[in-house]
Design a protein around this nucleic acid. Structure first.
Lengths: 119, 119
DNA sequence: TGCGTGTATGTCAGATCGGACATAGCATCG
DNA sequence: CGATGCTATGTCCGATCTGACATACACGCA
């Protein structure tokens, strides 16, 4: 799965979700998968951004490299639970997690926060 | 990690924000619990707001009333996975889910978290 | 009082998850 | 080339979760 491409689509008009429907998922299942995908992407982004290897993050998580790989691949055997824990272990705040799921595009194109912030 | 401990503690009846530290949770565990709490609150809010009973939501979820009760109680035996599914089943958008976690209050005052909608 | 409805709590068998391990693919380096 | 480091995939088996059920509590009503 190439994240770059997916992100392009997201930024453009939203395509990723349609893949799930194509697979015969209900809208609810699709939404759930989207949540997982969003979190797995964010996890990978944070990890690489911090120059960590999967093995390092795994250690921090008390898990294994293979599991981290599956997390980032949004493998079916990975739950949102684990992804959230992984994000937290990678230092993500609740805010970041929330934004990853429902937030506006994580693209850094925008200079200001969605909402007025820092004094 | 130490789910047993968490289970007991949660079962012992606990309060929202500050209790984690008192319970000796690591910051990461605390953050995770906060996520769960935020989601369970949102779930209950959405359900009642829609005039649904736990049993009705359960049916929609393909689950049972007792499990929904546990979800809303943020019981240790429910995962973020299930909470997210519950929210989706209740019609919540990804955005709403993200906001519930990441906490930018959409509209109403964020202070009355206990349920203070007694207007 | 008894009944109906909604919610809370405990339990359990079966389903799912997760850490660990093995293994393979791919770069990079000496 | 071999060695090292990082990632991907498949497979176990013990740990955890989940739906279902039983049951209890609360409230309103006739």
């Amino acid at each position: 799965m190439d994240n770059a491409k997916k992100k392009n689509l997201e930024g453009a008009g939203w395509r990723v979700g349609s893949a799930e429907e194509f697979l015969g998922l209900t809208p609810e299942e699709a939404a759930f998968v989207e949540v997982k995908l969003a979190l797995s992407e964010k996890l990978k982004a944070r990890r690489t951004q911090q120059g960590m290897s999967q093995a390092q993050l795994a250690r921090r998580l008390g898990s294994s490299q293979s599991r981290v790989a599956k997390m980032e691949a949004a493998d079916a055997s990975v739950t949102v639970d684990l992804l959230v824990r992984g994000l937290i272990a990678s230092g993500a705040s609740k805010r970041e997690i929330g934004n990853a799921i429902g937030g506006v595009a994580p693209r850094q194109a925008r200079t200001g926060r969605t909402r007025g912030n820092a004094a």
